[in-house]
Nucleic acid binder design. Structure first.
Lengths: 362, 362
DNA sequence: TTGTACGCGTTATCAA
DNA sequence: TTGATAACGCGTACAA
């Protein structure tokens, strides 16, 4: 298995009978070269099995043809799926994806970002707006373009592609109010360092307050994003707040756990209690009862984030803020509250919209 | 926002009052430098916010501190989870993950591998043994170390970390034979370009044949890996082969689809029919009925693959073939066949092991 | 322990 | 359209 050392561009040039410069041009900008010489060079490339040396290229051209993406975790299917779409899109343009994850730890994220910046990524895709100050400092100092995704930074000046988590969550709450629910609980993922989770809780709270309902601290459970923790949270709700008729969950994983716990205790969903999710993962529609949730265009976010990055790298312009469409999907897990539990219904007074519900598309 | 240009190692050296070489050493091998000078250099680094230039480093040191991983798709949670673990492990050693996917298309994979090789990855992790010849050619020519995962290449000479899909699948079939099943169907993912799927089917077939049962071509359904396709495949089985009492599925996703279809038709699982999965994704244990399946140490594969790569890069030795433990998990979805369907039981003659079942751990 | 100087493989500038 | 040649930023023998 004596591997001869890999051939260099100089070898290609020699074999093709051209200068190094011409060989280089042929590969990076073929139109600058005569068709006949181009063929000679390409033939030499094929003959030698020449493979460009990325680092040398990056050093000389100051571009790595590499994009970084930093997400909380691939163990959440919405991020996995989105990254899948992103990688696919990047590959078609000859770009490669450098992936990092931090499991909801801002310091870890900071380190990951630093690592990717060192690797010389041409752009960086992040999730949400919550990041360590060091992250923004680093990116700014490096003059690196980045995109925040899954969220809208309407006040700020960051480039972003996403949607209003607050408005979407408010929409969910409105749906439940419409059905007649008055006693709510919220099961959320940890809101610290997670603007998406925080905004979703805020959206629900806004909408309830706008309709004269307070969300008491006991009615808000924060926990990890897992089916098991969803179950546990629901167990707490059933034990501590038995009057609850509507449980809004921060994502589908938690909602499925919540539904499982309820059903295993003989609490009918949606007969006794309504439960909502968020994300619309595959399972949400297949579960019994199927889950009322908010559908997110997961793959689209990955693909479009890639496209925005590429456009900016090529010197193009993109709108600073781009919104993707999200959609309330009403399925089996929500229904009017049981008669016994219904508050005196204020006939003819449908729920009022909260601030957050202005955008129709959410 | 006038960003001053990023500072270089020369700047650090100047500010610290040392030579370029000393500055370099301080960063790459601190022990080679006096503590006092080290401090001066690090102070300069901090003051200037110096960030090493990865490409220049890679060019000079001929190492990129980067590992490539190429998988079929992140849309399968076992791959997502495994990659998550791998990235995590690599990050702790200062390595970065370059990710590619090919969606079960060998030519696409070939292109992705080429892209990663160009980027100068220090090592490459692949899935399975089925790869385009060009892939092996490229890797060999580049002298790049690689690991095949999720599989064992016992005959070949590739480094690999995985398990025998054949033996594991045979184990599943044996379990069903033990229960008394005689009429089988298999729902598999596409076996073309997918040695894992192929081996699983082969394992079942081996075991059946060893017990005098043929798996007819009609009783083997190949389809896409999705719940929907699992449903469809099960619909076919129920319609075309109503005598079937045991359905072995290529993975849990397919099995869940199969169970859904059966239940929606009022076919009791496991009362009328037993169904098995493979992988043991979270859902398998939470579904009702919970799924009999094979548990794979998904995160462990990712983590250990990373460790093997790192060891080899540092010049260490690893066993060419390493096996991970997989385990049959018997749950609710399997039971003896209904009495009416049972063949005349050969009392006192338990099922015979097939070749594939030699390894006890599968 | 530190410094000097060369090389890593390519791109890009400038002339020809 | 092509060719010579100077960067690109850092690692590392080798010498001091």
């Amino acid at each position: 298995m004596a591997r001869d050392k890999p051939s260099l561009l100089t070898d290609v040039a020699r074999v093709a009978g051209v200068s190094l410069a011409t060989a280089s041009r042929t590969l990076s900008d073929p139109d600058l070269v005569l068709p006949t010489t181009r063929e000679r060079v390409l033939a030499a490339v094929a003959k030698l099995g020449y493979v460009p040396h990325g680092a040398a290229r990056a050093l000389a051209s100051r571009r790595s043809r590499t994009i970084g993406a930093v997400i909380p975790t691939l163990d959440n299917p919405i991020f996995a799926s989105s990254i899948q779409a992103m990688q696919r899109r990047l590959a078609t343009e000859g770009y490669t994806l450098l992936l990092g994850s931090h499991e909801y730890d801002l310091e870890a994220e900071s380190a990951v970002v630093a690592a990717l910046v060192e690797r010389g990524v041409d752009g960086l895709v992040l999730v949400g707006t919550d990041h360590a100050p060091a992250v923004y400092g680093l990116l700014d100092k490096a003059g690196l373009s980045y995109e925040l995704t899954w969220t809208l930074d309407e006040g700020g000046f960051h480039h972003c592609l996403g949607f209003s988590n607050r408005a979407a969550a408010a929409r969910v709450a409105m749906h439940l109010l419409h059905l007649g629910h008055r006693r709510f609980a919220v099961i959320s993922g940890a809101t610290r360092s997670n603007d998406r989770a925080r905004e979703r809780v805020a959206g629900v709270r806004d909408m309830l307050v706008a309709n004269g309902i307070e969300l008491s601290p006991q009615a808000l459970v924060e926990t990890e994003f897992s089916v098991t923790h969803g179950r546990r949270a629901m167990a707490y709700v059933l034990d501590a707040l038995p009057d609850t008729t509507a449980v809004v969950c921060g994502n589908d994983i938690l909602a499925i756990g919540a539904v499982m716990e309820a059903m295993s205790r003989g609490v009918a969903i949606p007969g006794k209690m309504s439960v909502t999710g968020f994300d619309d993962i595959d399972l949400a529609g297949e579960w019994t009862p199927s889950l009322t949730t908010v559908r997110l265009p997961v793959a689209e976010i990955g693909r479009r984030a890639a496209e925005r990055m590429l456009t900016r790298i090529e010197g193009g312009e993109v709108r600073r803020i781009e919104e993707v469409r999200v959609e309330l999907v009403v399925r089996e897990s929500t229904a009017p509250p049981p008669r016994s539990a219904a508050s005196p219904v204020r006939k003819g007074s449908p729920p009022k919209a909260s601030r957050g519900c202005g955008r129709r598309r959410a």
